[in-house]
Design a protein around this nucleic acid. Structure first.
Lengths: 160, 160
DNA sequence: TTGACTTCATTGCAAATGCAATGATATTAT
DNA sequence: ATAATATCATTGCATTTGCAATGAAGTCAA
């Protein structure tokens, strides 16, 4: 590491007067990112150690469990996971015995996922954890929860 | 790829009755994740191609530009970026000539970042793009904007 | 039917990432 | 002052990731 080895004070460029006004603490994309990462990580901690399930695995598992006949492309769109990521994650879950892949009979390009009994059992244990976590959040938010959901709907819309 | 090559319909396990009720579409951690990813990606598209700046680079740049004397650890905490990620991102920005690293005179373990004039110029071009983007979001949200900020404040709090 | 084009999932590969280990500096207790 | 412990940034390394390329299958037009 090459560094200018000197005292920083009074030495750096003085920036404030050359940049536009900008309040990072109020910047929405940044704030959403921070909150979302915190939520995902906090939840992941609760099941990662005990069940050895990663965040992408959790997301795929959840989608396959609660929506029938999903393809890779479907999951990609629903969860914002790159298709290659979905594909590899599903392969892992298959290797662990939690789901199976089947070629769709109507369109043989598509792969459809289905949980195995073990997958169902696992998800059955994970869901209560997820629900408890959501309950914590709702408690924090109180009666704002309805409006928050409306807001999220707005931001999820495709158009721009 | 080894697959059971057969028609999926009526063949998979029927899951719905064996799993707890769960509405993925209303699940908050999931929804926040999707929204945050969409916002970050949409914004990144606007400056990635033109300026060759990645999302982590953008975040570090922003923090260094608007808060004086930040260390790696400071940024890690503020932006939820792994310290190694901050370190490597800062190294890239330094290589590109946008910031400099200096050892702190008071505590020589700390590295303090400062933007170079080129960094200031770059950030000066990026900020208006970011502000325009935030304006779009605010337009979508209308008068719910205050609520959104309240919510994000609640969820950012450390405790749990 | 044939051929051009599109859609889907997987895979190769280079780049990015996370975690643990390292080395340097500070702090604390004895 | 010395030794033990803690904090900070970087780096090594194995894993994960994203993107482009591939191959298989479907669609459309002539």
């Amino acid at each position: 590491m090459k560094l200018v080895d000197c005292v920083v004070k009074k030495k750096g460029f003085h920036v404030a007067d050359k940049l536009p006004e900008f309040d990072l603490e109020k910047y929405l994309p940044y704030r959403f990112t921070v909150v979302a990462a915190r939520l995902s990580d906090d939840l992941a901690k609760k099941y990662k150690k005990r069940y050895g399930i990663s965040i992408p695995e959790w997301r795929v598992l959840l989608n396959v469990g609660y929506t029938q006949n999903l393809s890779v492309r479907d999951i990609e769109k629903r969860v914002n996971l790159e298709k290659s990521k979905v594909s590899r994650t599903a392969a892992k879950l298959e290797a662990k015995g939690f789901l199976i892949k089947q070629i769709d009979g109507d369109d043989r390009r598509l792969v459809k996922f289905t949980l195995t009994p073990e997958g169902i059992r696992l998800l059955g244990e994970l869901i209560p954890i997820a629900q408890a976590f959501q309950a914590e959040i709702k408690e924090k938010l109180g009666d704002q929860i309805g409006l928050v959901n409306q807001t999220l709907d707005l931001l999820m819309k495709e158009d721009e």
